[in-house]
Design a protein around this nucleic acid. Sequence first.
DNA 1: GAAGTGATATCCT
DNA 2: GGATATCACTTCG
Length: 178
Amino acid sequence: MRDTVEVGRSLLGKVLVHGATAGRIVEVEAYLGEGDAAAHSARGLTPRTRVIFGAPGHAYVYLIYGMYECLNIVAEPEGKAGCVLLRALEPVAGIDVMKKRRGNKDLCGGPGKLTQALGVTRDHYGADLTRGELRVEEWVGEDFDIGVSPRIGISASKDSPLRFFIKGNSYLSRVSGK
DNA sequence: GAAGTGATATCCT
DNA sequence: GGATATCACTTCG
């Protein structure tokens, strides 16, 4: 569990690159395997969640509510479940492309939105994020403070402080409409 | 505030 | 093998 948390924190500030588009990771959530009722992996290994139990550094993309993909990065070593959900990005490249795809609205301020903006689909399920078209890159930038809070939009384990974000960043996700 | 969307997992026959 | 309950969200009212 600690490893997943560490990976999540270390992902903050890095950049997710997909072709011409790229975004800085400003908000993530850790999803553990054992003892985390909110994680897909909590109920064991299934065809859908098998990537979470696989090698770290790979993408776990799933379709939720029929229309939206969510992008996770596997964090734990093979055999253990644990992944980090990317919730929000700060657009840094290919913004015009994102706007075209998203219709000029909020580009990356939510798990389903950021995948649309970057063009991430289930085709990237299991992809290696250290190389290839879709990848995560280091980013040398100014220092930032990391904030912690409970996760958003789930029904189980609401109180676990497993959401990490860059303090003060204005591209963080918001809970709809409110 | 509520509905809609489709894949998955868990029943039920 | 087939049906339905669930879901880590977004959009529209």
